[in-house]
Design a protein around this nucleic acid. Structure first.
Lengths: 217, 217, 217, 217
DNA sequence: GATGAATGAGGATTCATTCAT
DNA sequence: TATGAATGAATCCTCATTCAT
């Protein structure tokens, strides 16, 4: 019902009264706690009280900043999503896109994988929250990625139909996701091996489709 | 209304009290209802009362046949698991395994995909029930599949190390799972396209590894 | 509340069709099972299903003979009560009542104690069922005993007021009950010691009240 | 589960947040309500919702302070037990123990009887809760009383064996308990009469055993 | 009569959310 | 604002009792 609190952090300027600085800290605190709890038990099993306790505040305080449990997940997902999108923006930089496929895969996958390794809550949330607000964010993320991937593919396969590109992009994302599961579940050399294997799968999958060598614009 | 003659002919002898036939039907009914509800909402969000209602019985009836919510999931998962394993047994028949890779992929993937399309609850349950009894079954299934896949791979790549085989098998399963998501989320021609694409991905991934053409024993 | 089925077993004659003989056996079976279950867990914790199972019949069968759970306890209590009253009738025989106090105590207490040792369910039921129907039976038993005890006391203390007799009788019964707890909780020599101690307590309590030596009529 | 509330009332200083004062009151309120309900219906038949309603709060509130139904009984029993033990400590004061038997009985029994009359829930709980936590406390209480009684007896009967003392003590406690039932079931003059009768029974039971007149140390 | 499935109200417990201080 | 108590609907599960066969 209540939706009053929705100011983006970006909107805050240095002129903001320091009264609200504490509030910002509280929100960050709560989101961090939520990330931990969601990660451990998943969204459904996480109770607002446990999040509050993890954050070291009372449940009442939590509800001073978030209208309900879903809003926490949405905000957390949103922030991570934003950072993810920034990542993607850099990963899909034009200067990367004109590289040959192997280098391109490195340039795109490495930062994305790194981001997910550093923010495991992201994956946990996106996966199976069942919360509309998040699913929506997830879909936005997915669509964004899809578009980017399709864009890249287009430069490699100028003759492909849109349907083909869509199909292939979805497969690529699927392969990426399932590999990410393996990557996040392992460590060290094994993790590196899965990363290499992911690139190998994608390379072999995509190479036969490539009809053009992209060149710098 | 009533369907007295519907029990399995083989298992039921004249000594078996026909009273219990109703119980058998109820159990099947409840499991089917549970499959639907689990599929829609996932295990955690599914309430026993909603399962009972879906099955058209009272909550007490449900508890006459299952001691608790988890037991329903375990039983359902177990039955599906068993049928899945039988599928796999047929899919990985030796006569299939000596075929060339493309035919092999058809022979193995088609029945498994068909099974999952017919039993979407299977995937939903295996995925994220959080129920130990199922997770365990899931792991058994996974390990079983892994072993089978490794066995096949071994015949194609006799020189690979065990670690390599393990890595590759896990990737194959991961790719299969993520494609299954796409397959289950679509229908008709699109679904068929994803099936074809899955085979394509696997074929291109595996072909370079093949060092031997397996022959019938 | 419901009391439809209330025919006393005593009312059955040899002319009764043997069809009902099975019913009688069933009832006895069920009552015996109930005695065991009530004894183990107490009335409240005993479920009708557990009684039925203990008796080796289905719950439906149980309800063919007893309208509800309470009726089982009432019937069981009633039967034991009847046998108890027969005991008491013999224990309080006139030929016993004219004995001197020590012999009288032996004559009265020994059979009563023996009965309770052989029928522990009796005590368990009478004690704390909380069921009106039983409490009622218990009170009838209590009142009957009270009357008998008062009758005996009267012969020993012809000058006592009714209030005094009532008071004393209640104390005697109370002492008896608490001692019975100790007696039932022990065995062998210890049990015998408690029996002796009970008699000792009563003897010392009553002796100072005795004003007349009763003589045979 | 719950660990928060454990400070003794004495421990509350001005530094203690007064927020929690309300909690303390609620707990007392709930325990009082529980005492009433347990008294009326016994432990098993008492529902947590009825306790909450009796206390004028919602079921959730009850569970904010007690993890489950049993904990309520254990806490209530524990508090009463503690107060009972304090009573006993005063009742069995050395200065009482060197009095002649009649005065001793007055000194010991009167406060204990008074306590039970003021806290009828105590007896109800101790009796037949079936709760391990309470049964345990009950046994501790019983054993403590037994020891105290034996201690007193020892001063009166220096020559008795331990077995004899144990037997006698158990009888005394049994007589006391059964009389307490009568005392709690009556009022006014009748109650007083039962109290007097109890003392009379014990006096007559014990007098013949006394071999020594205890003197102040 | 016997059976065992069916019923459904009721009880313990949880947790997202609100309120008084 | 922060706190923690308060709320109550919803959930899992039980069991006395009834019903269809």
């Amino acid at each position: 019902m209540r939706q009053e609190r929705q100011e983006k952090p970006a909107a805050r300027t240095s002129a903001t009264p320091r009264r609200q600085a504490r509030g910002e800290r509280r929100i960050a605190q709560l989101l961090e706690a939520a990330a931990g709890v969601f990660c451990k038990n998943g969204y459904a099993a996480a109770s607002t009280n446990s999040i509050a306790k993890e954050a070291g505040v009372s449940p009442g305080t939590l509800y001073q900043f978030f209208p309900n449990k879903e809003a926490i997940a949405v905000e957390l997902g949103g922030q991570l999503l934003q950072r993810a999108n920034e990542m993607h923006g850099q990963a899909f930089l034009p200067e990367n896109l004109c590289k040959p496929l192997p280098e391109l895969l490195d340039a795109v996958l490495d930062p994305v994988i790194a981001f997910n390794c550093e923010n495991p809550a992201f994956w946990a949330l996106m996966h199976g929250s069942g919360v509309p607000g998040i699913t929506q964010g997830h879909e936005a993320l997915h669509d964004g990625l899809l578009t980017r991937v399709q864009g890249v593919l287009r430069t490699f396969c100028p003759d492909a139909t849109n349907a083909e590109l869509n199909l292939t992009s979805n497969m690529i994302l699927g392969i990426f996701k399932s590999s990410l599961d393996l990557i996040l579940a392992t460590e060290g050399a094994e993790r590196a091996a899965y990363v290499a294997e992911l690139k190998s799968v994608l390379l072999r999958y995509l190479e036969p489709m490539v009809t053009t060598t992209p060149t710098a614009p």
